[in-house]
Nucleic acid binder design. Structure first.
Lengths: 182, 182
DNA sequence: AACAACATGTAACCGGTTACATGATTGA
DNA sequence: TCAATCATGTAACCGGTTACATGTTGTT
């Protein structure tokens, strides 16, 4: 325990606790579930898998499909302990990089502000377009909590889109000053 | 134009359009305004300032305080054009790294889910504690849009905190399944 | 036959963060 | 005098992303 896990290690261990998986399966599941708030690329998954195996947190079994090699990983006892320690720890990273918001920040007049708000609203709408179709998938996989995380994503983007559209309308209609409710 | 600007370059150019500033001033203004959605460290600001000057997008003037050297930068015409091109371009990056949400995703039962939701709510509350005191500052600096961006931050964290607390209460009271409105 | 999907991996690149190093000024 | 703040910069580090490289299997 007390090893500090990389971002990629956290998502790998969690996904392997759900069920054993190959690197490829981890990647495709990440892409269809956590990617909107926690992404991972092949270039970090495979090296991390190697490190985690060397550290004794996961174990790999060869399960080829014909001649196509394939390694399925599962958590060891040490891996379980490590994951649980992280799950109980205080979450640290909550980071945002929001370019449309930066454009809004730098807007000098009502026109620019409205344009930035519309652009931001569109971006959130795009996310919704990607999130909503995977909703049934997430709900089916495990009864409860992955679906909750997805729901947060949907609720957040709906909120943000709505907020931006309301503010854009306000700004466009003249009253550009700060103020207003939640 | 058409140069692709780094994350740090975007925030530097924007801040210099508001008014000329030293690297130190850029950093401290970033910390009290955009940092919650667009941060920048000295280690990227000073090298970037050098690159931008070499690229002819900004110009520096020596304005020492006694014997303490100090360089104040301002936008050149090329810098103005570059910034405007970026402002009018489609914003690309909208990234999130949300550790409490990942913990929620991996929670296996109602207890773990509730704990993750409470932890996430607390994190949002912490952000609010940092954002609310700088509200008057942002509102005063320029009449309009920086305050709007700040307001989005406050509204977002309020929304997220409320959502997490509501869901935590739901999960704790037994009905742990997915569902429910916006 | 060809293409999409399965499957694994490496290497170069990029760029932000942390830590370090230095020095002046101001207010307590 | 001492600490906080002003002020600038570099170097090492870290780690994620992109691109590249290779081969199999299943589907059309």
């Amino acid at each position: 325990m007390a090893t500090n896990l990389s971002a990629t290690a956290k998502v790998i261990l969690g996904m392997l606790r759900m069920r054993p998986r190959s690197g490829y399966e981890i990647k495709s599941f990440v892409d269809t579930s956590t990617s909107f708030f926690w992404s991972a690329a092949y270039g970090s998954i495979y090296p991390e898998l190697k490190r985690l195996r060397e550290a004794g947190l996961i174990a790999g079994t060869d399960e080829p499909t014909g001649d196509r090699r394939r390694v399925v990983y599962e958590l060891t006892d040490a891996g379980h302990a490590e994951l649980e320690a992280w799950m109980e720890s205080e979450p640290e990273t909550m980071e945002l990089r929001d370019e449309p918001l930066l454009q809004l920040f730098f807007a000098r007049d009502a026109d620019e502000a409205a344009a930035a708000l519309r652009a931001k609203a569109n971006r959130h709408a795009e996310f919704l377009g990607r999130l909503e179709p995977i909703r049934p998938l997430a709900a089916s996989l495990t009864a409860g909590t992955p679906a909750l995380a997805l729901e947060f994503g949907i609720a957040f983007h709906e909120f943000a889109r709505g907020w931006c559209e309301r503010k854009a309308a306000e700004v466009e209609s003249g009253r550009a000053t700060a103020g207003g409710g939640s």
